[in-house]
Design a binder for these strands. Structure first.
Lengths: 131, 131
DNA sequence: GCATTCAGATTACAAGTGTAATCGATAGCG
DNA sequence: CGCTATCGATTACACTTGTAATCTGAATGC
């Protein structure tokens, strides 16, 4: 199936640690390696070399683009967050619920992973979709 | 956070291939390695040794239990599917949507990953929850 | 009884990941 | 004009994962 929802095609799978880096750049880009580190290193207990490795790998994977800025690079996402989120969500639903989203919802509901806010919000979305 | 929803504690992370094996045993157990292979080997292009490796790793990880049966083992899940599904779903929601389920739902809706059936079903579940 | 067969156990081995250290060039500081 | 601080690039290295092959011991067929 190569449809429009396959919108991050060509990009290899992004790992967990790499994803953390992507999040930083999705929320603000372009950034240098040091900038990215400022945001995540503390939080994840990483050192700069680690961030640099992850950035390189993401460039290799085609998930990031680089712009020279003096003697360093600035990094920009090449794939959109929504595309990533889309394929990841779909993967999960596929793997765990045979592709059906309702069971996922049921499960979240049952395990009380849905807050009152979530429920209200989902109801609102449903109403909207019915128009 | 060690709460009731942390119900598969102690079990290391189950990989993708391992998960396929778990699914077989969740749908019917106890089974021998050969039995498991009968179900998945064709479908995933695996050979028996592969299944045996995965079974061993799952036993090591504490996800399966063994019962001797003659000179072979029968395998039984030690963790429940719902627990696994729960933690996996939560992981995703956590990672991608800051722990809120509504955005996940919104995303699925937007990407048309929700069938009409899904929507009807979710509506029904919502009604039920309101009681 | 002895060879064949079939179980699990042990070993293999490449790719991907997490987490860096080191190297080689260069841009500024003094 | 040379030294140092910094870049990115290269290399490292252990652990996990996918995917087996081989080994070893016991059961079974003859």
């Amino acid at each position: 199936m190569t449809s429009k929802s396959d919108s991050n095609s060509g990009v290899e799978r992004i790992s967990d640690a790499e994803h953390a880096v992507m999040e930083v750049l999705w929320s603000d880009s372009p950034l240098s390696a040091a900038d990215v580190c400022d945001v995540v290193c503390k939080e994840r207990g990483w050192s700069i070399p680690t961030v640099k490795t992850l950035l390189s790998r993401l460039v290799t994977k085609g998930a990031l683009d680089t712009t020279p800025d003096g003697r360093r690079y600035l990094y920009t996402p090449l794939i959109e967050r929504s595309a990533y989120v889309g394929t990841e969500s779909k993967r999960l639903v596929e793997r765990l619920f045979g592709g059906r989203a309702a069971p996922l919802f049921a499960h979240l509901a049952e395990s009380e992973a849905l807050s009152a806010d979530d429920i209200a919000e989902i109801e609102r979305l449903l109403q909207e979709m019915k128009k």
